[in-house]
Design a protein around this nucleic acid. Structure first.
Lengths: 301, 301
DNA sequence: GACTGAATGCACGAATTGAACGATTCGAAA
DNA sequence: TTTCGAATCGTTCAATTCGTGCATTCAGTC
């Protein structure tokens, strides 16, 4: 839920004076609203984005409802994966969330967080489970945890602009894995889209209905398994035709889509990972927020 | 056409106190009429104009909580269900979360929120889907949304004391429904337990492993479907014996557990709903927070 | 070293907020 | 129409936040 914070709380959380924070808000560095009486109201995702863009730290994260010690120790590159794996397999929810939030605040792109940390760790846990090095319940618990971590990331990213273009997506019938589609949703929201995951196990014809009813400009489909290849291709291409007739682009991705299958498939773009997806999504819908990390200090004002 | 709102409703929707909102109306910031007796009546378009003009941030996801179609904003009692159903089936994430959080803030117990609002609405959506009144994607999207709402509720409840007794649970192999186990987790956390859901599709032997490794004092198991009744009963009773030997209580629940099956089953307690579960959980682990709803206003602080 | 411009933190009175309180009004059932 | 619980009224009060001015710090420049 988008929650409101007062300048005092945010200032305390970041570790600066209330005066400075008020100045930053007035300069437009942190988007904020004002009450009828003129008091500033800050939203969590806006604050996190500011911290991220300006390279600030968090002195007292718990004040704005973040796990303690967030933003203090930034796990550098490789070690983040190892720590995250440890937290995930042991079921340490607080630590797992903290690691991902740390990466987000320190400026790592959402797509990279997903591609380089969450997804590989998740895959590694699957391997460990298949090898018998991890109990079933540990693997299942990690699945649960992963969903919660992504939820937290979605919270940090924010819901995107209300007037942004609509994107919907999910996984197909027979495909119960929600991880990829949930990550896709967050990445698209970060790229300025009004993205909503429809969940998993979606038959083709309901996706057509969704396009007809909601008129999205983008649909992503994650394909992990395919039962009947021929039927899949036929159904998919019909879906693509429906989409194009409504001006909706189709993004596909997933292990099941081998080069052979892709040759018979019609789609707008295929993505090997979420960075590809992000790049494509930004091509159609360029980001309207401050983006370039290098030039931003000079460009200001 | 012209919908009227009370100051209380609008205050809740915008996220300010009723007092402030009344002052703004009196200052003329929001045009409003008065009844013969002096009660303020606000019109929807006037409120929306105020939000647009004063809060120059324009697009505020918070404001989506003003459902023009349904009318009332504050979900009081019965209407909460209807509004929640509307939000869930239309995929309105912000409104759905708002309704549930409002109920929580207003003092409704977590168990009651789950039993009287979330669960019935979820079941109704299933019915609508089976009758063909709802598209598949709407039902799947509602599932997704439901998970997110519960996540938000879990956030509001908090993670419970670190030194609280441990409770773990989930659904059995072949049972893919995570809703019940996730709600159970939140209810138990609210009751002071350090509860962690292990997720869904858990084989019996991994539950035994979990008990041996983590030594929980409580395990909840949600049973929605049973394939082989005899094997189920046999496996379950073995699990129960393992649990008791480790001093772990077993709570079961779910539609699949008919009276016949229950007769052959050994468990600590059977729960028809989450209120039962809460009551039982509090019996073992009396709540250390403010509990009784009647005296709570005085007891605070 | 001295100067400059910008950013920071603190202090101040004025204004706003949110939570009380008893009194009054509303709306629906009897 | 009358009655009664729930909602709203107007008001007060402590706490918070507003906007502003001012002293301090700190790079960068002369």
């Amino acid at each position: 839920m988008s929650q409101f914070f007062s300048p005092k709380e945010v200032a305390l959380a970041i570790g600066v004076s209330e005066s400075s924070l008020k100045r930053w808000v007035d300069k437009g560095l942190i988007p904020a609203e004002k009450t009828g009486g003129g008091h500033r109201r800050l939203q969590l995702d806006a604050v996190l984005r500011f911290i991220r863009d300006e390279g600030k730290g968090l002195a007292n994260p718990e004040i704005i409802g973040l796990p303690a010690e967030t933003g203090k120790i930034v796990p550098a590159g490789e070690s983040a994966q190892a720590e995250f794996l440890q937290a995930m397999s042991s079921g340490n929810e607080a630590t797992a969330k903290r690691i991902i939030l740390d990466l987000f605040i320190s400026g790592m792109s959402v797509a990279n967080i997903c591609d380089l940390v969450i997804a590989p760790v998740f895959e590694r846990i699957g391997d460990l489970w298949r090898c018998g090095d991890l109990e079933v319940y540990q693997e299942r618990r990690a699945c649960e945890l992963c969903g919660r971590v992504i939820h937290e990331l979605r919270r940090a990213v924010g819901s995107g602009p209300d007037d942004g273009p609509l994107a919907i997506g999910g996984t197909l019938d027979g495909d119960p894995y929600t991880l990829a589609t949930n990550m896709s949703e967050v990445v698209l929201r970060d790229a300025g889209w009004r993205a909503t995951s429809l969940g998993h196990m979606l038959p083709f014809d309901t996706l057509r209905k969704a396009i007809e009813n909601d008129h999205p400009h983008l649909m992503w489909i994650s394909v992990t398994t395919i039962r009947d290849t021929e039927r899949f291709i036929a159904n998919f291409n019909v879906l693509f035709d429906t989409a194009t007739s409504f001006g909706c682009a189709i993004i596909v991705g997933g292990q099941a889509l081998t080069a052979d299958i892709r040759q018979s498939l019609r789609y707008t773009t295929f993505c090997d990972n979420l960075r590809h997806m992000e790049a494509f999504a930004r091509t159609i819908r360029p980001r309207d927020r401050v983006a370039t990390p290098i030039t931003s200090p000079e460009v200001k004002f």
